[in-house]
Amino acid sequence: MIDALDLSKQYAGRVAIDRLNFQVDRGEIVGFLGPNGAGKSTTMRILSGFMPPTSGRAMVAGYDVFRESLAVRRRVGYMPEMAPLYQDMRVKEYLHFRAELKGLRGRDMRIRTGEVMELCSITDVRRRLIGNLSKGYKQRVALADALVHRPDLLILDEPTNGLDPTQIRQVRELLRSLRQDHTILLSTHILHEVELTCDRVILLHQGKICAQDTPRNLTRQLRATSAVRVELKGAEGEAQKDLQALTGVRKVIPRSRREEGWETYVLRVESQSDVRESIMDLALRKGWKIRELHRQLPTLEDVFVEITAGDGVPAQKG
């Protein structure tokens, strides 16, 4: 559905994205993940036909995004960051306008706008002025607009940005329900987001792809650190030194005490090694009391910190 070849974009000489290569297949939900300024929006603007790349090329649904921009735009539903909308139009009026603009007519247009309003749960606000709607509703109006012409590909730039947790869950469920009929490319800087929604993650950092894989594999590939959390009593200040001495422990980080006598530590450990047994042994030997011993599995957050901090070997996979 998407085929990007050496896609690059510079703004007045400043590199925003640098030779991106990636594919998205029909039916996939792919997440662009990266901190602010990584180049997510830039890439999406190019893919949606808004502006051309400085060099390289991209094919969307078999059309070149620059030379056959109009054909691409007919097949792509794009929702920009922050969901920009005309404030002084009413929801239904806006969607009718957009649907007509995208080539729908008459009865079909009216039925389809009704459908997408239902789908995005905005039917009850259809007569309201967009400017008076809450952020969550605006976001869904923009999504309805992206969907209205039955596009093959949905490009959604931070669709859950600025929403409260309930609204985020609603949007996520909506995206899941859309996966039968649409290929979806979405961007986010929230890791949890892609873990829950996407089949595949493309990790962007400073305009470059630093990893792309399934969320699970990415987590598993994690070369470094998982963490163990332990809460103990009776070590009399010796605990940190003793824990540090265990094999497989990289670093011991003391946490603030919650209760008199109890000390909490987070241990960064080598991946694949599980130090929980040796901690237990140590505690028995020393006569410590333990009331929490818990291994924290690495999250995408860890992958992200690891890779973007530059000390991980970037996992470059097709």
Binding site: R73, Y78, M82, P84, L85, Y86, Q87, L101, K102, A142
Partner: peptide, 14 residues
């Protein structure tokens, strides 16, 4: 100002 040029020019308009 609104950023709606982006929605406008990602619709099939010249």
């Amino acid at each position: 100002k609104l950023g709606t040029l982006e929605t406008l020019f990602t619709a099939p308009v010249r």
